[in-house]
Design a protein around this nucleic acid. Structure first.
Lengths: 185, 185
DNA sequence: TCCTTATATAAGATAAGTCATATATAATAT
DNA sequence: ATATTATATATGACTTATCTTATATAAGGA
């Protein structure tokens, strides 16, 4: 599980509660990692058991107590070690590609509609990506390091390149459909 | 779940057993869908319950009985309907990107090593992809349709484009590391 | 006044998939 | 002679993640 390491990564900057962590995910890696709130809490519990993080309960009068987690030396070791290894590439089961694979069973018009809405969606995602750097300021105030922001921008860059590759692919298929290059049988 | 529809897609060509299906996955969509044997059997059971496929037991003397599944009219309807909709884009949790995001905590030499082995791995994947069309013959003999093979090649094309985009990204980072473009702090 | 958002954590149910293992036989390769 | 591969299905245990719901309070907007 790498949510585990993502959490350790953030806690290595500063101590945070489960609630804070959720916000951190949302302002920084939301473009490639949507963290589930309940999963964060469960993973935090698990990391505590393993001695990789430590919990400090901060009492609050009017709201539930804050439980602030800090990384332990053992947690830092684990994180460093993990950052150096290559994570086993997990095969992604792409529903979209399964649809492409079997879409010969649809009519050409239906397929054209499909790829056109795919292309349209990708353009939306592309725009969303191009607007992500707006959140940079929020993130900067949390980590305050040009080096960290640099790597953040790299993850954005890959996202952009991937979406562009996808869009070009979809557009090349639209071209083929319009020019009658798709075999009828 | 889209394994469900992937199975319906194959059964729409011809009736197959769980064992046959596993082989079908391996010779055709293995590059974007590694199907788990036990998951295929479980999904087949579930599809039978839902009335989307039908089971015929074929007795064999020396080996376990073959259970051959065929798609029902209801299954065909479901498949057709699904092929037309856009599957909700499932957010992929990329361990590799989490590593990039936090790798500012490593030294520049360690990071260089990391991206170099990443690039090397992508080159291997690229070669593997370029060799996939070899399996085309096997697949052709199963479906015998130029239209179907065309869409198969499209899924390969996307794979190639994506890997190339990834590789270019990794190489651009290697360049930056070598030219001292990575902030020290 | 009422609704939403923010603050904060947690647990039950369910889904989807992976891993390991079990059963049984025949053919092929080393 | 021995080991592996092919044929064929199935289940138990486990992991990871998602969805839903619960609890509690305060501030701010319509």
């Amino acid at each position: 599980m790498s949510l585990e390491y993502a959490i350790l990564g953030f806690l290595n900057y500063l101590p945070l509660s489960g609630y804070d962590l959720k916000k951190m995910f949302d302002i920084s890696v939301q473009h490639f990692w949507q963290a589930d709130q309940s999963q964060i809490y469960r993973t935090l519990a698990q990391l505590t058991e393993q001695g990789l993080v430590e919990k400090e309960v901060i009492h609050q009068e009017d709201r539930p107590d804050r439980k602030v987690y800090s990384i332990t030396p053992s947690g830092q070791e684990q994180l460093q070690a993990w950052l150096k290894i290559m994570p086993p590439p997990k095969p992604d089961h792409s529903a979209a590609l399964i649809q492409v694979f079997f879409c010969g069973q649809l009519s050409n018009e239906e397929i054209l509609t499909k790829f056109e809405s795919m292309a349209a969606m990708m353009k939306v995602v592309l725009q969303r990506y191009q607007q992500v750097p707006t959140q940079l300021e929020e993130y900067k105030s949390m980590v305050n390091s040009q080096r960290e922001t640099f790597f953040w921008l790299l993850t954005l860059d890959l996202g952009l390149r991937s979406i562009r590759a996808n869009l070009e692919w979809a557009e090349s298929i639209i071209e083929m459909l319009k020019n009658g290059k798709v075999p009828a049988k």
